[in-house]
Simulated assay, not measured.
Amino acid sequence: MPELDRQFWKTAKMVKPVSQEATLIQLDRDILDWFKSKGKGYESLIKSALCSYIEHNSLL
């Protein structure tokens, strides 16, 4: 990865994360078990899968 020089910082923009809201959803046990089997951060993996689905189905 190249070193970040002054030019980089001249044009850099801060990107704030999209706000999140806690919610409760019901998932089939086998689906939840699969995501949990991927290890720590499985909730983020579920979110990524849902975001990918939306992006690929032009639902945004």
Rank of each mutant, 00 (worst) to 15 (best):
E43P: 00
P2T: 09
A12E: 08
K47Q: 10
A22H: 13
K13V: 07
L60A: 15
H56C: 10
K36C: 07
K10W: 03
I25G: 04
K10P: 01
Y53R: 01
A22K: 07
Y53V: 04
I54K: 04
N57K: 07
L24A: 14
C51V: 06
E3K: 13
I25E: 04
K40C: 04
S44K: 06
R29W: 07
L50M: 06
V15W: 11
L24S: 12
Q26Y: 12
L50C: 05
G39W: 03
R29C: 06
G41P: 00
S37A: 10
I54Y: 01
T11C: 08
S19T: 14
L24G: 12
F8G: 01
K47N: 12
A12H: 02
T11D: 10
L50Q: 05
K16T: 14
L50D: 06
V18D: 13
K36I: 08
F8D: 01
R6N: 11
C51Y: 03
Y53F: 11
R29V: 13
K40L: 05
K40G: 02
L59K: 05
F35M: 02
H56A: 13
M14Q: 13
R29A: 05
D28N: 10
K40D: 00
V18E: 08
A22S: 10
V15K: 15
C51W: 03
S44P: 01
S58Q: 14
S19K: 15
R6E: 11
D30I: 05
K13T: 13
K36T: 07
P2W: 15
S52R: 04
L45R: 02
K40T: 05
M14E: 15
S19P: 06
N57M: 04
S48E: 10
L32K: 09
Q7A: 09
K10F: 05
K16G: 10
